[in-house]
Design a binder for these strands. Structure first.
Lengths: 201, 201
DNA sequence: CCTACCGATCGGTAGG
DNA sequence: CCTACCGATCGGTAGG
């Protein structure tokens, strides 16, 4: 990919994430890159194709990051910690990712659904079967719905970071508290309470 | 409020929720109502003021619904069930509400923050202090962050319904499973596990 | 990668 | 609540 194409993609990602697709003109992207509008349209022959390229580039970056974590993780609790940290870290590293995904979901749910199916399905399947094994072992709640649980945890990660501008409504020093509470909710809603050694019996 | 003003507000809510503010023209709203563009602009003198009125109307409807529930709820577990059911029901009844709120959060986080502070703060304060009482009684996790927990539960409710079009990525019959799993996650992340009578000790 | 230009649509106004 | 109209901006093309 040419360097100019990459620069256009970077600026378009940022502007689409912040102002939305309809709220961003090709003119505005060109200015951010430092070229004229027809020059941009030489690299991406329409605004719609540029949008597709931006989304595709975001999802492929997700695809780069996740497999390592999955294979790296080992035991139950460790796999939980490292995987969740990676998912949160992906969106924390660049909140534009969360904003862009959420806007796409609102604007074009069908298009996003097929892209997510392609890029996420193997990963979801792997996490699901790990959860089911934990359920058979009794360390994970038996009445938990694996796919639904994954949906909600990812939803919290994406939504929480696309809502980064909402600090102050729910509490003062929100970001840090919210992150810790997200991890706590995920953990305690996944693992069954440890059968404590009968200390007081 | 005049009947025509109300009809404009209804159509504008639907179109802003589905296509976004920038993606909806005044012309499109007028057509949905069945009048001409200048006639609409007689009732709302600018598109921006129409947006403000739409958001204000949505939040005041939330304000209508919630207080009853809070006063109606009684004991700990019942209060949890009825309040969560009401929050979910509010967005389930009309997914446009969730979509509109999420779009506003992406487009104008500052404006939404101050509106949410005005409409939600008393309610959040009440739920928080109920949670803190439960923590003192030991039936709610002591390391739970009340405001952050509320943030995540509301986030799941809003996000889950604005993501209604995403069925099929995570599982087949997603909506029903997801709703049940949301309630389970909220409950099990809130209440400490019951100290079972020592059956096997 | 540029200048010059296209028809269509945008939010909004004049005036009745 | 209407017709008629405004300047500005939209995505995109011609042609070099």
């Amino acid at each position: 990919m040419s360097e100019m194409r990459q620069r256009i993609l970077t600026e378009a990602t940022h502007l689409f994430a912040r102002r939305g697709y309809e709220g961003t003109s090709v003119q505005a992207i060109s200015e951010a890159v430092g070229i004229r509008k027809p020059s941009l349209l030489y690299h991406f022959s329409s605004k719609a194709l540029l949008r597709d390229a931006v989304l595709e580039s975001l999802l492929s970056r997700w695809g780069d990051v996740v497999p390592q974590v999955m294979t790296a993780a080992t035991t139950g609790e460790n796999r939980f910690e490292s995987t969740l940290t990676e998912v949160i870290g992906f969106f924390e590293a660049d909140p534009d990712r969360a904003r862009l995904l959420w806007r796409e979901m609102l604007d074009r749910p069908d298009a996003l659904r097929s892209l997510l199916s392609a890029h996420l399905s193997p990963w979801i399947g792997l996490v699901s079967s790990t959860i089911r094994r934990g359920q058979r072992e009794g360390i994970i709640y038996a009445d938990l719905d694996p796919e639904a649980w994954i949906f909600w945890v990812i939803t919290m990660a994406v939504a929480g970071f696309s809502a980064a501008g909402l600090s102050g409504v729910f509490s003062e020093d929100a970001p840090a508290h919210r992150r810790a509470e997200l991890v706590r909710i995920a953990r305690v809603s996944l693992f069954t309470p440890p059968l404590e050694a009968p200390e007081h019996g």
